[in-house]
Computed example of a mutant assay.
Amino acid sequence: MTTDTPARLLTLLSLLQTPREWPGGELADRLGVSRRTVRRDIDRLRELGYPVESSKGADGGYRLVAGKAMPPLVLDDEEAVAIAVGLRAGAGHALEGVDEASVRALAKLEQVLPARLRRRVATLQAATTPLTSGDGATIAPETLTAMASAVAGRERLRFAYRAGDGSASRRLTEPYRLVSTGRRWYLVAYDLGREDWRTFRVDRVSEPFPTGARFELRELPEGSAEEYLRRSLGHRQETYDFTVTFAADAEAVTAGLRGWRGAAPEPLGPGRCRLSGTTGDPVEWLAVRLALVGADFTVEGPEKLTDCVRELGGRMVRAAEG
Rank of each mutant, 00 (worst) to 15 (best):
T3N: 15
P6N: 08
L15Q: 09
R20L: 11
P23R: 07
R30P: 03
D41Y: 02
Y50K: 02
A58T: 15
D59K: 10
G61Q: 04
G61W: 04
A66T: 15
K68H: 11
M70G: 10
M70S: 15
P72D: 03
E78D: 12
E79Q: 12
A82D: 06
L87M: 05
L87G: 01
A89S: 13
A94S: 10
V98W: 05
D99T: 10
D99E: 15
A101Q: 15
A101G: 13
A101V: 10
P114G: 06
P114R: 09
L117S: 02
A122D: 12
P130N: 08
S133R: 12
G134F: 00
D135A: 13
G136H: 00
T138C: 10
T138A: 13
T138I: 08
E155F: 02
Y161L: 04
R162S: 09
S167P: 04
L172D: 09
T181V: 06
R183G: 06
W185I: 01
W185K: 00
E195P: 00
D196E: 11
W197Q: 02
E207M: 12
G212R: 07
F215N: 02
R218V: 02
E219T: 12
G223W: 04
S224N: 07
R230M: 09
R230Q: 10
G234D: 09
Q237L: 12
E238T: 13
V244R: 01
F246Y: 11
D249C: 07
V253L: 07
G259A: 04
W260I: 01
R261K: 14
P267R: 08
P267Y: 05
G269L: 07
G271W: 07
R272L: 11
R274E: 10
S276Y: 06
P282I: 07
V283P: 00
L286D: 03
V293W: 04
V293R: 00
F297I: 04
T298C: 11
V299T: 01
E300W: 05
T306K: 11
G322H: 12
